[in-house]
Amino acid sequence: MEMINKKELAALSIKEILEAYPYTESFFREQQFPLDMPELTIRERHRKLSMDEREDLVLSAEEFLEQLSLFISNMQEFLGEGKEEVESLTLLPGRDKDSNRENYEKITIRKGEIVSIVGPTGSGKSRLLADIEWVADADTPTGRIVLINEKKGDKKWRLSGTRKLVAQLSQNMNFVMDLTVEEFLYLHAESRLVENEKELVERIIVQANELAGEKFSRNTPVTSLSGGQSRALMIADTAILSSSPIILIDEIENAGIDREKALKLLVGEEKIVLMATHDPILALMADRRIVINNGGIINVLETSAEEKEILKELQLMDERLNMMRNALRYGKQLDSGKMPVRQFSCL
């Protein structure tokens, strides 16, 4: 699509602008520019604004035209960005808090891969996540360099309001909007300007229900979902609808959600997943783990075959715990004969 400049926009009627660039409707709405006389041009309509309306709009007709043309070019870039997919993320070493060089040559994470990040509190996990978010170019306190597709990262990731490199999922996140699940998802889809809105929304609802221990309906207000249901919806929504190719997870609590399925969903949607965790099950579910201490990466470990065996043990224990939790919740007495012992029904 051709870029449109201010002069060309000024010659069009509001109706013509809306027809050529349907997404500008949200721009007019957010700017509080009235759409009641669509046959007029921007300048003509601006001249008819009352004092109060001008006050609300803030911008002069010329400023408004400039902002509109900028908005359109941002949107065109945003919509055309599918071409340039993020295939891999690479970290090049920086320094720890004592200025020692980090202990690795290069870490490359491809899409569909999960890497966990382990280390004590305060060891520098937030800094690492911030470096990735900023596409660090030796210009952060660690001096790390982040490459995208093996090349120096495009700085446009840093400051765009519509597309960020990194989506985050953390423990403390809540829904705060007064909307039902369905309304909420449509709102998100709308902001992404996706074409197959309905299909995506349906898929998210189905997937979220598969992840959640307890099912929920599309008409449930998002604010009354349980902790597990909220996390399930957030993960399904981020996997399917987020614009960001990289997902940073800060722990997934082990209640009311199938964590393994959740991770599979994320990587199945071709995301690069980094997961900070203190939980051995999550740490071992990853293909590799980054060990971090004193602000620096001190090691990168492959999850060994033995660890994968241990993971099965852990998952079994986890499952037992869950069964007991559920049995107690529904008023049953615990019966050791009915607990899974050595067969891996959940895998």
Binding site: N74, S170, M173
Partner: peptide, 20 residues
């Protein structure tokens, strides 16, 4: 850090619509 990723995205998109 306390709202969902979806809400962050919607909010940021609206900010960019108000001030591109």
């Amino acid at each position: 850090d306390i709202v969902s990723q979806a809400e962050r995205e919607v909010f940021a998109a609206r900010v960019s619509a108000v001030n591109p």
